[in-house]
Each structure stands twice: as C-alpha cells, then as structure tokens.
Amino acid sequence: MTSCHIAEEHIQKVAIFGGTHGNELTGVFLVKHWLENGAEIQRTGLEVKPFITNPRAVKKCTRYIDCDLNRIFDLENLGKKMSEDLPYEVRRAQEINHLFGPKDSEDSYDIIFDLHNTTSNMGCTLILEDSRNNFLIQMFHYIKTSLAPLPCYVYLIEHPSLKYATTRSIAKYPVGIEVGPQPQGVLRADILDQMRKMIKHALDFIHHFNEGKEFPPCAIEVYKIIEKVDYPRDENGEIAAIIHPNLQDQDWKPLHPGDPMFLTLDGKTIPLGGDCTVYPVFVNEAAYYEKKEAFAKTTKLTLNAKSIRCCLH
C-alpha cells in the first residue's frame, strides 16, 4: 500500500463567511444568496454554514464600524470581559468565536472560507496562513488546477512579526479568498463568478477527501510576504508620492531593483532599492491607505505537500 500522510479526520463542519468587511460585496451577495438557497454549497455528509460576519458594517456598506474585524481574533480580544464599552467588532468577534470556535479547541469548525474583495488587480487569490499544512496545500492545488487556465495565486502570510489574527483563524483550516479588482461597494459579475467557482472547487475537494480519495504528493507556487511598504510621506505625515503608473495593476509581476515604484507630484520617480527582485501584491489597495500600506513585497517559492487521505471509520 502506498505510504501517505493521513489527515486527522474527515471534514464535518464548514463555514463560509461574507461581510467580514461590509463594503466587499461579492461575499456579502453570495452568502445572502446561499442563506436563501444553499443547494449549490451542500455536499453529502458535510455541514456547510453561510454566515454574515459583520452585519452592521454590511448594512452601512462600510469596511467596519469601530475597528477591523479581520485583525482582532487574538486571545487578548477574544478574552476581554464582555461589555457595551467594547468596540462593536470586538464584541462581534467574541460572538463569532462562540459560534464557530472556540479558537484553538477541538470544537472549532474544521474549515472557514472568508470571502473578500480587493481594489487591487490580484485576480483569484487564496490566502494561506501555514506553509506546513498538507491538507490546505492539497486543497489549493486542486482549486488552482480546477480553475486553469484562469490564474489563481496563493498568498502566504506566515511571518515572524506580522500577526494578522484573522476572522477565519478560529477554524482548524483557515482559508482566505480574495478576488479583484473590484471597487468597494460595487458588485461585478465576473468577480462574483470567479469567487463562486473557487468555493465550488473547494467544496468538491472536501467531498472527494471525505469519500476516501487519496491525493498524491503535489507542489504549489506561493508568494510569501516579506514586508509592507508605506507611501513616501512629508514631515507632516502626508502622502508625498503615489503608486507609479508602471507599478499600478502589476500585482504578482516581478519588481526589480531600480524599477519605478512611486511618483511625486513634481514628476520624480522613486525606484525600488535593494538588490532583490520582489513580487508586489495589494498594490494601491483602497482599504490600506489608513493602514499606511502602499503594497506588500513578496518572494516566490514552492511548497510541497505529502499525499493525504481521509481516515475512514
């Protein structure tokens, strides 16, 4: 018999989150649709729960009410004593943790798909938090293969000092899905179709896995975050240069030392320094102006996964 890495157990509980950011409308629209008619997301033997994560922000069509829901799922915020004085999103995070967690427990949901849009030209993107997770690498390989020839990129946010504390991190297997470009507060049919297909293929993978299909060893190309880059700023902290036209919409493309990065209003080009080629992502993302992030630098690498098969009882 072929030796293989056996994944822990079959997958039982899956959640699909929309509206973690209330103005990213593809996930909101799909989740609302699936709450009314969820036939397309159901798979035999699998509990799939669509869920609106930040209903107040969705109602106002804004990213958040008090603070970013997708950055506060750490033990400090989840452990705060519940009171009306807490920011709305912290209270909501505790409610979500109660419903789908608790985080880092045996009772937490197996998989959470968190649906997002970006204003950046990132196409279909899967966000991975753990480079050693054979199950998710296999799932992402399946999704990428199923979507081809449509490109699907994998963004690895594993980093020693950049801690995200994402909404989906309460699950055993957290999956971020990011599709763009799409303006905030807008629905685009092409973007919706791409996100819908990503979810379909992900659920198909889980179904095949649960039925005992063995997935042979595989490898995927990923883009691992190195650092986030702020806009150049003046002495008052105001933005002093904008994304250069040569960099705009060039997510995932190589940016070499000396290539144009920013452009000042008086026409001066600010190039990339250093001696390493990087791959920019979230270029000129609207939501990241407040976070002082013009783009993120990534490096390209390959992740390998062992063969996996479900432990059938």
Rank of each mutant, 00 (worst) to 15 (best):
H5K: 09
A7P: 07
I11W: 02
Q12C: 10
Q12Y: 08
V14Q: 01
V14W: 02
I16S: 02
G18T: 01
G18H: 00
G19Q: 02
G19W: 03
G22K: 10
G22Y: 06
E24S: 05
L30I: 05
H33Y: 09
W34K: 03
E36Y: 10
E36W: 06
N37Q: 14
G38R: 10
A39E: 13
E40V: 02
Q42P: 02
Q42R: 13
T44E: 11
G45R: 07
K49C: 14
P50I: 03
P50M: 04
F51K: 04
N54M: 04
R56K: 14
A57N: 05
A57E: 04
C61T: 12
T62R: 11
T62V: 09
T62Q: 15
Y64H: 12
I65H: 12
D66C: 06
D66A: 11
C67N: 15
N70Y: 05
N70S: 06
R71V: 09
R71M: 13
N77R: 12
L78S: 13
G79M: 10
K80T: 10
K81P: 06
M82T: 12
E84K: 14
P87N: 09
P87S: 10
Y88D: 12
Q94A: 06
E95L: 12
E95Y: 09
I96P: 06
N97A: 08
N97C: 14
N97G: 11
N97I: 11
H98V: 13
L99I: 12
F100H: 06
G101H: 08
P102G: 13
P102A: 10
E106F: 08
D107I: 14
S108K: 12
Y109W: 06
D110N: 06
I112F: 03
F113R: 03
H116G: 15
N117R: 03
N117W: 03
T118P: 04
T119N: 14
S120I: 01
G123A: 06
G123E: 03
G123I: 02
T125F: 09
I127H: 09
I127N: 04
E129L: 05
D130R: 03
D130Y: 03
D130N: 09
N134V: 07
L136W: 00
F140Y: 09
Y142C: 02
I143G: 00
I143N: 00
K144S: 12
S146I: 05
L147C: 15
L150E: 14
Y153C: 15
V154D: 01
I157T: 14
L162F: 15
A165L: 10
T166Q: 08
T166N: 15
S169F: 06
Y173R: 15
V175S: 01
G176F: 08
I177V: 15
V179H: 03
V179Q: 01
P181C: 02
V186A: 09
L187W: 00
D190K: 04
D190H: 06
I191R: 05
Q194V: 11
M195K: 02
K197W: 09
K197C: 12
H201V: 11
D204M: 02
F205D: 00
I206P: 00
I206G: 00
H207G: 07
N210P: 02
K213R: 10
P217T: 07
P217W: 04
C218H: 03
V222Q: 00
V222M: 02
Y223L: 03
Y223M: 05
K224N: 08
I225Q: 08
I226A: 07
D230E: 13
P232Y: 03
D234R: 11
D234P: 00
D234I: 04
G237K: 06
G237R: 05
H244R: 01
H244P: 01
P245G: 04
N246Y: 08
N246C: 12
Q248P: 01
Q248L: 08
D249T: 02
D249E: 05
D251M: 00
D251W: 03
W252M: 10
W252L: 11
K253S: 14
K253Y: 08
P254G: 07
P254H: 04
L255D: 01
H256V: 12
P260S: 09
M261T: 15
F262R: 01
F262D: 03
L263P: 00
T264A: 07
L265S: 11
L265A: 14
G267L: 05
K268L: 10
K268S: 10
T269K: 15
I270M: 07
I270S: 03
I270N: 02
G273A: 11
G274T: 05
G274H: 05
G274D: 10
D275R: 10
C276E: 13
T277R: 05
V278M: 08
Y279E: 01
V281M: 10
V283K: 01
E285V: 05
A286Y: 08
Y288C: 14
Y288I: 12
Y288P: 11
Y289M: 11
E290W: 09
K291L: 06
K292T: 07
K292F: 11
K292R: 14
E293Y: 12
E293C: 09
A294M: 02
F295H: 00
F295G: 00
A296C: 06
A296T: 14
K297W: 05
T299P: 00
T299G: 08
L301I: 09
T302N: 07
L303I: 10
N304Y: 09
A305T: 04
S307A: 14
S307M: 07
I308Y: 03
I308V: 14
I308K: 00
R309L: 05
C310K: 15
C311Y: 08
